[in-house]
């Protein structure tokens, strides 16, 4: 159907779709409702990797013992999304497919080196999360493909997550950062560039023994924040640098 009858917009929890509908910015008129596909809601360990179905809701992520054990920073991110109603409806696949640079789970998946599993009528393909986005709100997903799950290999190191929203809850991120601190640090930042940023140069420098101050300088070169109605580029830069130091610190708040 996706292939033969022209584009359909996949919809699940509709927590982003309805916002666009309400603003009159939703141009599409044909939708494919995935909500009842319970098979895509499974959270399990498969071949050593954590596999999370695309339709797992934020509430599912928060409650899943597997997620809490293997990827606690994802549970942390999910618990800071919207309010309870949004968490009950919004899905991980939706957060990723919506492709907002402010998506709260995106830095987590980027830092975790997740794999996006896409399935089309013909075949299944696996795309590294870091190659999933091609630009502002653009992804490699083809119109005849659905995101079906995410796979995350075991992670070594301390997982840290911090969202800086416009208030304590029900807020969109101004800066959102996920860090895996350890011998080979991994750092990802959202809301500071057209897509989520995986800070590989900063990571490499840290792995090679660079100081936190040096890492902060490098990280600022890897992001490109802007002024918008929620914050300023300058704020995002300073807070990104400050958060890096905080999240790398042995005991972080």
């Amino acid at each position: 159907m996706l292939r033969d009858e022209g584009p359909l917009v996949p919809m699940a929890g509709c927590t982003d779709l309805y916002v666009a509908l309400n603003f009159g910015t939703l141009t599409e008129t044909r939708f494919l409702d995935l909500w009842r596909l319970d098979a895509l809601r499974t959270i399990a360990i498969r071949e050593g990797a954590l596999s999370i179905g695309a339709l797992a809701t934020h509430t599912d992520l928060i409650r899943s013992p597997l997620v809490r054990r293997r990827l606690p920073m994802l549970a942390a991110a999910a618990s800071e999304i919207g309010g309870v109603q949004i968490q009950n409806r919004g899905t991980l696949g939706g957060n990723v497919a919506n492709a907002s640079p402010a998506g709260d789970t995106l830095p987590v998946l980027a830092a975790a080196d997740a794999t996006v599993v896409l399935r089309g009528a013909g075949a299944t393909r696996r795309v590294p999360f870091s190659s999933f986005y091609t630009g502002y709100r653009r992804t490699v997903r083809r119109p005849d493909e659905l995101i079906v799950s995410f796979e995350i290999a075991p992670i070594r190191g301390r997982q840290r997550f911090r969202k800086v929203g416009t208030r304590a809850a029900q807020a969109i991120s101004k800066v959102v950062m996920a860090v895996i601190a350890g011998e080979t640090p991994r750092i990802a930042v959202g809301s500071v560039a057209p897509t989520v940023v995986r800070a590989r140069r900063t990571e490499a420098a840290l792995a090679a023994g660079a100081s936190v101050a040096e890492a902060q300088r490098l990280l600022l070169d890897e992001i490109a924040p802007i002024d918008d109605i929620r914050s300023t580029a300058e704020y995002r830069r300073r807070v990104t640098a400050n958060l890096l130091a905080r999240l790398l610190a042995p005991r972080s708040a």
Binding site: V19, T166, R167, A168, A169, I172, I229, R230
Partner: peptide, 16 residues
Amino acid sequence: MANATLTNYIIPTSLD
């Protein structure tokens, strides 16, 4: 008004 939405005009929630 550039932030004329409940998403972007920020009033306190109970957590604030």
